[in-house]
Design a binder for these strands. Structure first.
Lengths: 118, 118
DNA sequence: CAAATATATGAGCGTATGTTCATGTATTAG
DNA sequence: CTAATACATGAACATACGCTCATATATTTG
């Protein structure tokens, strides 16, 4: 998006890499999927929901009470977690019980917690 | 907000914790720190930078060329990665060479990649 | 010295995101 | 049936974010 009147973009004189390697750079589309996923974890409310769900399966109203926020907010955030396949749910009467989907969630959660405590 | 058909949520016993690694619900302040950190990874450009840096130390202009984006954009994003202690850097003349800070970064990167391939 | 290079950064703009509020859909109680 | 409960969802508003552009700083070169 600039002003390259020459045929090649001016690169550093030193230290270049082979232009197209197989691995990196990460494909744009895959980077967007990963970014979207990390974005799901980039919210205090959703992380606190995950922390509660790491203890036990819970319904929406208990989650709302546990975090002292509205059930609407909880429901909105649970949808995000659902779409990212971070939580599962089962219906029981009027209630819907949520739980963590798999081990990856807690793995990420713990890794970041460790990183921040250095 | 609670109901009587099920037991009360087994959460939030109002006990105070040692502010280190304790159980749910996650403290608001810690949840914000973690969210901020995940937010750093929630961007396609930063993830692609990380993928490049997982290969080798690189200077800003090589990163910009590798991703075909402006050096300004790269520099802005590197600052974010720097503030989150995800990358280190060293100066060499006019150039600044960046590299990944520790193993946590790649660990998170790989975990999410696995998760998305299921 | 001045010019060129390599990077950093503040301002501004367009877009994405999280909340509240109002409403909709199921399910149960009376 | 109607009312109440539990949850989901669309709209709207305020905030946050990433980019471009212009400019600033530092280093090397002539």
């Amino acid at each position: 998006m600039a002003h390259e009147t020459e045929m090649e973009a001016p690169v550093c004189a030193e230290s270049h890499q082979p232009a197209s390697v197989e691995g990196p750079p990460l494909e744009i589309e895959e980077s967007q999927q990963m970014a979207e996923f990390f974005g799901i974890l980039a919210d205090p409310t959703r992380l606190r929901l995950i922390s509660l769900l790491s203890l036990s399966e819970s319904c929406v109203c208990d989650l709302a009470e546990g975090l002292a926020i509205s059930e609407s907010a909880v429901s909105h955030q649970l949808r995000a977690l659902r779409n990212a396949r971070l939580v599962r749910y089962r219906k029981s009467g009027r209630q819907v019980f949520y739980r963590l989907h798999d081990h990856h969630v807690l793995s990420l959660y713990e890794t970041v917690r460790e990183h921040l405590q250095e």
